[in-house]
Design a protein around this nucleic acid. Structure first.
Lengths: 224, 224
DNA sequence: CTATTTTCTTAATCTACATTAAGTACCTTT
DNA sequence: AAAGGTACTTAATGTAGATTAAGAAAATAG
C-alpha cells in the first residue's frame, strides 16, 4: 500500500519492535552480535576485532523520543549520528516559517550537518527525531582521534562523502528536470521503507511541494 | 555591469590573454613559476618539490576550443579536469531535448562526472568547453597511482569532495526555498566572474529557468 | 476518555514560470 | 562580405504548483 495505515501509530510500532536488529555472527563456535555500525563500516573497510572495540569505545548509544531536536540551527554541529532504529530528518527553516527537509535517515544511515561539522561554524540545519530512535553518537573530537588510530577510517568517511555527493547531484538534477509527480515516483522506488514511516507533510517538504499539493497529487496517482 | 559586453568576444578575450597566469615564487634566489594546479593542491596539503614533480609528471596539459565536448553522456568518465584558463560546464540532457547545467568550472576549478568517475560506470553527464580552455588532465588511473605514492592526496581529494557536497546541499536547499530571482542574485554574488564569461542561456539553465523567463527577469532587475 | 493539536483532504483562486511564436542582434563559417 | 546559425528580447497564452480557507480524520496530551 502507498502509505502507512492507521494502526499501529508511529511510536507504538517502534516501541513494540526489537530495538537492536543486529546481525548474528558465529565465530569459532562463539555467538556474537555485531553492532549495526560495525556492519556498516565493514561495507567499505575491514576492521580487526581490536579496531572494532576501539571504534565502539569512542561512540555512545542514546535513545530519543520522537520530536526531540538533536541539533538547532545556529549551533555548531559537534556530532555525527548513526541510526540504529527509528527515523531522523535534517531540515532548515526559511524566514522563520517554511521548513525544507534536506534528508531523512533511518536504520543504517548517517546524518549530520556536514557544513557545520566540517567548518565548525554555526549551521542552518535542524536535526530532529521523527520516530523514536536508537542513535549511535560519534563526536567530531573522537572521530579525529579515530582517524589517527585507524587511518582506514579516513577512507570510509571519504567514500561516505563521495556517495552522498553523487546522490545530492542526482537529486539536484531531478529537481531541475522532473515534475513533482516524477520526483515522488522516484522517491517511492528508492525509499519504500520511508513511505511507511514518515508523514506526508515531511515527504512533501523533501520533494519541494506544499502538503496540499502533495495530497492532491497522491489522490490523483491513486485514481490511476 | 551586469553582463559581458559585446567586445571583445569570448574567444578573442581568451586567445589574447596570457594562457598561464601562474604565481611567481622566489626560492633560494631562483625564480620559478608555480603551476596553478600545484598552487591549488597547496591550499589543503603541503607537497615537497619532489612530490610536486611527481604529481605534474602524472598529468597532461591540453588546449581545447570552445564547444569541444570532453565527455559524452553514456561514456565512462576516466579523467578529472582542472581548469587553468577558459570555462567548462557539465550538463545532462532530458528526453533528448532540454539541457540542465550541473556546474561550471573556470580557472582554478576541478570538474568531472563524479558518479561515473567513482563507479566507473557510464554516466549521464556531458562535459563541454564553453570558452577556449587550457586544461590539466588527471586520469583515474594516475590518480590511484598518486594516492599510493603521495597518501596526502587522499586528504586533498577528500576535502575537495566535502566542499563540493556542502555546496551542493546549499544549492539544493536554495532551489527548494528561493525564487528564481533570489537564486540569480545569489549566483551573481558568488560567481561575479562567470557572469562576464558565460551566456545567459547557460546561466538560466544552471538556475533552472528558461532563457525567455531569464531574459524577462533580468530586464526587470535592471529597471529597478 | 476527552480535549487539543496536528495532519490530511478538498476546492477555489492566484502566480511564478513554461510554452509558443516572432522579430532582432549577434557570432561563426565560408 | 554574405549566409546561416545561435543568442537574446518581447509578448500572448498556458499550467504546475502556491495560497487560502475550512472541514474531517488522526495523533497526542491531559
Amino acid at each position: 500500500m502507498l502509505f502507512k495505515t492507521k494502526t499501529p501509530t508511529r511510536s507504538e510500532k517502534d516501541l513494540a519492535g526489537k530495538q537492536n536488529n543486529n546481525r548474528i555472527l558465529v565465530i569459532c563456535g562463539q555467538i556474537k552480535t555485531m553492532p549495526q555500525i560495525i556492519d556498516n563500516l565493514s561495507k567499505h573497510i575491514a576492521l580487526t576485532p581490536q579496531e572494532q572495540e576501539l571504534f565502539l569505545s569512542k561512540t555512545e548509544i542514546r535513545h530519543y523520543k520522537a520530536k526531540t531536536i538533536l541539533l538547532h540551527a545556529g549551533e555548531v554541529c559537534k556530532t555525527s549520528y548513526f541510526v540504529n532504529s527509528g527515523v531522523l530528518r535534517s531540515f532548515n527553516i526559511n524566514d522563520n516559517i517554511v521548513e525544507h527537509v534536506l534528508s531523512f535517515a533511518c536504520s543504517g544511515w548517517w546524518i549530520g550537518d556536514m557544513y557545520s561539522l566540517l567548518s565548525q561554524k554555526p549551521g542552518n540545519l535542524f536535526i530532529q527525531v521523527l520516530e523514536d530512535a536508537e542513535i549511535v553518537l560519534l563526536s567530531k573530537e573522537n572521530q579525529e582521534i579515530l582517524y589517527q588510530e585507524i587511518p582506514k577510517l579516513e577512507r570510509f568517511f571519504r567514500i561516505l562523502t563521495e556517495n552522498s555527493l553523487v546522490a545530492h547531484q542526482e537529486r539536484l538534477m531531478d529537481n531541475l528536470s522532473l515534475s513533482a509527480e516524477e520526483r515522488f515516483e522516484k522517491f517511492c522506488k528508492k525509499n519504500p521503507d520511508l513511505i511507511q514511516k514518515v508523514s506526508q507533510k515531511q515527504i512533501a517538504s523533501y520533494l519541494g511541494v506544499t502538503p496540499e499539493f502533495f495530497s492532491k497529487m497522491k489522490s490523483k496517482l491513486l485514481r490511476k
